[in-house]
Design a protein around this nucleic acid. Structure first.
Lengths: 340, 340
DNA sequence: CTGAAAGCGCTTACAG
DNA sequence: CTGAAAGCGCTTACAG
């Protein structure tokens, strides 16, 4: 019933457990060729699979990387995880995944469990307000790091550890600049929850850039970070601006801080008889793959999400230093902000 | 440097390690209230975090569930993983994730590693041809199961273990029936690779249902299981059928076995000046959330993906039996197959 | 209720 | 090059 043990292999090969361990699990001290062969043969015949738990206990390293995301079904996070996975694979590490549904209790719990599992590193993806990292979590991280654990965050403030920072602020500023250059002058924003730093950074980057050009938004509304959040925000925006088909003023250019919110907004406006980009223009952020064939095609900003995920685990595995990196966004102008 | 140990806690509380273990890590034998309090206090003050590796070794159960998917960035799989995550959380298990990029070597490797980590169960999501599960993998699974490991597959054939089977075949048949009922008579199929069972089942379910109505497809083409696969297949299909705007025969109704392929197809046709649904109709499969606001809205089939993922881990955790379950699809008729 | 001790399956100085 | 032995941090019969 019990799995084949190193002891079993050693017995069959007629060597000591130590020797079997050395040939099977890569030590610098390589035993004689004949011995090594006997051990390997025995292992194969018995179907020996090393017990990673026991190895971890003996080695004080588990080869595990804990990954915490808000929602694995969100394309933003699943792309990050894809990149993280790939990087973990080349480093021969395993990924422990937690999808928290944005529940901070669950998040804290997941981190605790990762620490209990003695993950070599923990990567926290997702975003929250400055200083929002609660005391408990921070205390746990401190101890974790004191015991040799590595922490890397993606897109959130943290006093310690590594970080890879998507440039939400400056990419949004570039988007604003590009839209102004394209001839837009009247702007509005559909922002996200004030508690989410990504949402705030994107909004600020956009508004600040406009300000530098002597422009400002005519109205701002906010909603949940979802399709429906964009939908209802867009209705409020339409009401506030008294938008209707064929206004003489020309289309206002709306920045929805997320592609999915932009999609919800377009749906809302369509129901109101408003056409994009003729009656209202809209830009999003994220460049979600399944949205690339949307009609009208959506002006947006692409972030190198997979690369961000990969870099995060690379930083986590690089025990040298607590590096901080930035990941630039790329503005993509498409039909949804095309001026007639 | 080293983490706080159960021994440390016991010392500080003035009890034996055994007692500390019993109060901290839930045993039925509950020590006296005073003692328990002392231990808990000591643990808190020291910041004790149980070493899951050591517990696993001593208990012969890791609380780990291995999850293998083809591509975590694919909405199909990320939805499954989301459901699996949620179910794992209620069962207080941790998820080990592997995204294989459809590379069978990587897949085999991931399974081996999961076994090495002594995962309590392994869930394999993704699809392959009948009997394609290679010998090595199968042999490993056999040993794994003999040692008490549980295996559950999603949407693929496996002689042993549990399974949850998305009803690709019958849901596709229902789709065909619905389209015929809506008045369609001329059909075509954009299928996937013959090596992917999901693709084959969907195609067969559709074609067989047509057959039962005395109908058959006018042409079938295949492509990769991607947006670009759908795009190029759609071009071939258009050429084969000599599709052009405003054909007198009316629109042919094309079943693309995946939403993303359908999206690629629509893009290809748009470039050719063909309009959906006026010149050509199209239905997909999957009901991808970010595509729900697509124009034209896409007729498709929804699978309860999260539920499928959740059921898979529930089955994996239910050591009673190797259950097999079916998950029905739901046909959703939308604009892309609307007849004028 | 509580503790001493063996055992889970490995790795790794330490001797030979 | 090879082996005996201690140790990694827990759990759990087995005694008391």
């Amino acid at each position: 019933m019990a799995a084949v043990t190193l002891q079993d292999v050693a017995l069959r090969a007629g060597v000591s457990q130590a020797t079997a361990s050395r040939v099977l699990n890569g030590s610098s001290r390589v035993p004689g060729a004949g011995v090594a062969d006997r051990v390997r043969t025995a292992a194969r015949e018995l179907g020996y699979v090393p017990n990673a738990q026991a190895q971890a206990l003996a080695r004080a390293s588990t080869g595990l990387i804990g990954l915490v995301v808000h929602d694995i079904a969100d394309p933003y996070f699943s792309s990050i995880v894809r990149g993280a996975q790939a990087a973990a694979r080349v480093a021969r590490k395993q990924v422990l995944l937690a999808s928290t549904d944005r529940d901070f209790d669950v998040e804290r719990d997941s981190v605790s469990t990762f620490i209990a599992h003695r993950a070599d590193a923990i990567v926290l993806a997702g975003s929250r307000q400055s200083g929002d990292l609660d005391r408990d979590l921070e205390a746990e991280f401190d101890r974790y790091r004191a015991n040799g654990g590595r922490v890397v965050v993606i897109g959130q403030p943290l006093a310690f550890g590594g970080a890879v920072e998507p440039e939400n602020y400056s990419a949004s500023a570039e988007l604003a600049d590009a839209l102004v250059a394209a001839g837009h002058r009247r702007f509005a924003v559909i922002g996200g929850p004030g508690s989410i730093r990504t949402a705030v950074d994107r909004r600020n980057g956009f508004v600040d850039a406009l300000c530098r050009k002597g422009l400002s938004t005519v109205v701002e509304v906010t909603g949940e970070f979802t399709r429906d959040g964009g939908y209802s925000a867009a209705r409020r925006l339409a009401a506030a601006l008294q938008l209707e088909p064929g206004l003489a003023a020309g289309p206002v250019c709306v920045y929805a801080v997320t592609d999915v919110m932009a999609i919800g907004a377009i749906a809302a406006w369509r129901e109101l008889g408003l056409r994009v980009p003729d009656d209202v223009c809209v830009a999003g952020f994220d460049d979600i793959p399944t949205l690339r064939d949307h009609t009208p095609s959506l002006t947006t900003v692409a972030l190198p999400l997979e690369q961000i995920g990969a870099r995060a685990v690379e930083l986590a595995l690089d025990s040298a230093a607590d590096l901080r990196e930035r990941a630039a966004g790329r503005v993509i102008l498409r039909d949804s902000t095309r001026l007639g």
